[in-house]
Design a protein around this nucleic acid. Sequence first.
DNA 1: AACTTGACTAATC
DNA 2: CGATTAGCCAAGT
Length: 116
Amino acid sequence: MTDKDPDPRYQRIWDVIARIPPGRVMAYGQVARLAGLPGRARLAARALRVAPDELALPWFRVLGAGGRISLPEGSEGAAEQRRRLEAEGVRFERDRVIAEAWGGAADDLDALLWGP
DNA sequence: AACTTGACTAATC
DNA sequence: CGATTAGCCAAGT
């Protein structure tokens, strides 16, 4: 076939994001690292942006470094992201997610991805 | 092929 | 805290 195969890097990133437990959050860099792409935080962001809606990924559980929403403040997406996270019990401190929400997620994913 | 852009990050000031 | 700089690399122009 002449078609390009789907980029396996994106597949891995989508897989990681899809497994983030409710009520928890992860940073782009962390997602990239668990996807086997250390240092490619921007690729994780791009993958999320181009992700098909059919995957129904929990995009709102992915934040920038330090638990901050990366979408432009005042944008529709930023408001929705915060609303969805708070609906799952994730608490905020000004524009930043409380540290508790983001512990554990890596451990759980580590178990799900590498050792079930 | 050269240049710009970006849902990033860490370090500095 | 916020602003700046620099590193990074894939995709868009």
